[in-house]
C-alpha cells in the first residue's frame, strides 16, 4: 500500500477540477463519523468566526457604547451611523480607485502573461527559454525588496501619486506567477490539436485565441483571481507611491481611517467591513467559481 507510486492524473481532470466533491470523499465519509475531525473543524470555525463577529458587532455600536458595553455582546441599540460616517469620508472614491487599479493591473497582466506563456510553451528559440528562466527567477525574489528603486523611478517618471504608479509595477510583479501557471496548463493542451490547426493554415495568433485560450480557461481564471486579490488588497505600493486622498485605495484608506477616526473604534471597524463587502458580495455570488478557480492553478 505504502509503495503506491505517484499516479499520473489524466490531464483532463487536472485542467478542470470539478467543483463537485469527488467520489472518494463520499466513500470515506460514510465509514463512521469522525468525531475528532468534526471537533477540530468546529474549533477552527470558532477561530475564524469570532474575530469577524467582533468586527461586525462593534461596527454597529456607537462610541459611548463601545467603551461601556461588553465587547462581545451585540449592541442594545444598533446604529448605522458609523457606516454613514465612513461613506461620507470619500469611501466611494477609494473603492473606485481600488477597482481601477485592480482591473488596470490584472487585465494587462493576464494578456501579456498569456501571450508570453504561449510563446514559451510553443516556441523553441533560446531567447524564449532564457525569458522563461528570468520569469522563474522572479518567483524566487521577494520583489518588494526593490521598492526603493521603484519609488525613485516612479518619481523620475512623474508618475508619483497617480494610479498608474500602482498599476505598472503591479503588472510586472504579477507576471512570473501568471506565466508559470499558464504555461503549466498550456503544456497539457495536446500537441495534436495545434498541429491540426496549423495544417488548416491557422496563424499562431489564431491558435492562441481559438485553441489555447479556451483550453486553459481555468488557469486564466485562477491567475486572474489570484492577482486581483493581491492587487486589491495590496498595501506597500499605495503606501509609498501615492499620497493624496484622490489616489487613495481601500487598504490604505483603512489605515488612514484608523488615524482619522482615532478613538472611534466602531467607525474604524465599519470601514473594515465596508472595504471587505465588495469581495464578500462576489464571494457569495460566485463562490464556486472563485474557489475552484483558485484551486485549479495551484493544485498542479
Amino acid at each position: 500500500m505504502a509503495s503506491t507510486t505517484q499516479i499520473p492524473v489524466p490531464p483532463a481532470t487536472r485542467v478542470a477540477p470539478s467543483s463537485k466533491p469527488s467520489k472518494q470523499g463520499r466513500g470515506r465519509g460514510r465509514a463512521r463519523p469522525n468525531f475528532l475531525g468534526g471537533l477540530g473543524g468546529w474549533l477552527w470555525l470558532a477561530v475564524i468566526i469570532v474575530p469577524i463577529y467582533y468586527v461586525v458587532v462593534t461596527s454597529l455600536k456607537n462610541q459611548a457604547g463601545f467603551f461601556t458595553s461588553n465587547p462581545m455582546l451585540p449592541p442594545a441599540e444598533p446604529t448605522l451611523d458609523n457606516y454613514k460616517l465612513v461613506l461620507e469620508n470619500d469611501f466611494a472614491m477609494y473603492f473606485v480607485n481600488s477597482l481601477l487599479v485592480t482591473v488596470g493591473s490584472v487585465v494587462p497582466a493576464l494578456l501579456v502573461s498569456f501571450m508570453a506563456a504561449y510563446a514559451i510553451v510553443r516556441g523553441k528559440s533560446r531567447f524564449l527559454g532564457w525569458t522563461n528562466k528570468l520569469f522563474l527567477l522572479g518567483l524566487a525574489i521577494p520583489l518588494h525588496a526593490t521598492i526603493i528603486p521603484i519609488y525613485w523611478m516612479i518619481t523620475k517618471a512623474h508618475l508619483y501619486d497617480t494610479l498608474l504608479a500602482l498599476i505598472l509595477p503591479s503588472i510586472a510583479f504579477a507576471i512570473p506567477i501568471s506565466v508559470l501557471i499558464l504555461s503549466n496548463f498550456m503544456r497539457d493542451v495536446p500537441n495534436e490539436l495545434f498541429e491540426s490547426m496549423r495544417l488548416d493554415g491557422c496563424s499562431d495568433w489564431a491558435m492562441m485565441w481559438r485553441l489555447a485560450l479556451p483550453m486553459t480557461r481555468p488557469a486564466v481564471v485562477t491567475v486572474g483571481i489570484y492577482n486581483a486579490l493581491g492587487v486589491w488588497n495590496g498595501f506597500l505600493f499605495p503606501l509609498i507611491l501615492t499620497q493624496s486622498p484622490s489616489t487613495r485605495v481601500l487598504p490604505l484608506s483603512l489605515w488612514t481611517f484608523q488615524g482619522e477616526f482615532s478613538v472611534n473604534i466602531p467607525a474604524v471597524l465599519a470601514s473594515v467591513v465596508l472595504a471587505t463587502l465588495p469581495l464578500l458580495v462576489i464571494y457569495v455570488v460566485a463562490r464556486r467559481q472563485l474557489i475552484s478557480g483558485l484551486t485549479a492553478g495551484f493544485s498542479k
Binding site: V112, A119, R122, G123, D204
Partner: peptide, 14 residues
C-alpha cells in the same frame, strides 16, 4: 514555433 515577440510585452514590463 511562434515568434518570440509574443513574449516581448511581458518581458518589457518585467
Amino acid at each position: 514555433g511562434p515568434s518570440g515577440w509574443l513574449a516581448a510585452p511581458a518581458l518589457f514590463f518585467f
